[in-house]
């Protein structure tokens, strides 16, 4: 296990919304009887180890001005295209997530990208550009029509 029970307590605190006050770690420090310095040291180690990917604010896309949030799934002609396609897509600032997924035979679009833009025109432009760059011509835009749940993972 790359973390101990104290790290776990710290991550339990971090996975929620930390208090919006001058010293946000003070209440945690009192609760787990550790100094703020020690907590911050552990926080930095968690980040170095990659367990903590990022510390800070999580925004709501739509309210942040990104009206179009589309999942685009791409169909590879051959598996060798996968790596290059993943790298090209990762380079786009409008793309937040890019994965190659294991997919069943009845859904063979294995490259997934989440694209966030201001408007439909921009989405069409980006898709066309990616298609040209990667040579992948088959894709589907899987739009969401209703959000039924969205929350941060509660690991602990």
């Amino acid at each position: 296990m790359p973390y101990d029970s104290t790290d776990r307590e710290i991550m339990r605190f971090l996975q929620g919304d930390i208090p919006l006050e001058s010293r946000p770690y003070q209440s945690l420090a009192e609760k787990i009887e550790l100094s703020e310095e020690e907590i911050l040291l552990r926080l930095k180690k968690l980040r170095e180890k990659g367990l903590l990917r990022r510390m800070g604010a999580v925004l709501r896309h739509r309210q942040a001005g990104f009206a179009v949030n589309a999942m685009v799934a791409w169909k590879l002609e051959n598996e060798e295209e996968a790596d290059q396609a993943g790298k090209i897509m990762a380079g786009y600032k409008e793309i937040s997530h890019c994965y190659i997924r294991e997919v069943p035979p009845d859904f063979d679009y294995s490259v997934f990208s989440m694209i966030h833009v201001k408007n439909e025109e921009h989405l069409a432009e980006i898709i066309e550009e990616i298609s040209l760059q990667t040579g992948i011509r088959k894709y589907i835009i899987i739009r969401s029509s209703r959000e039924l749940k969205k929350e941060s993972m509660q690991y602990f």
């Binding site: 991550m11 929620g16 903590l52 604010a57």
Partner: peptide
């Protein structure tokens, strides 16, 4: 509602 939360994003 613009800021959903401030905290850690775990991997």
């Amino acid at each position: 509602g613009l800021i959903r939360r401030i905290g850690g994003i775990m991997d």
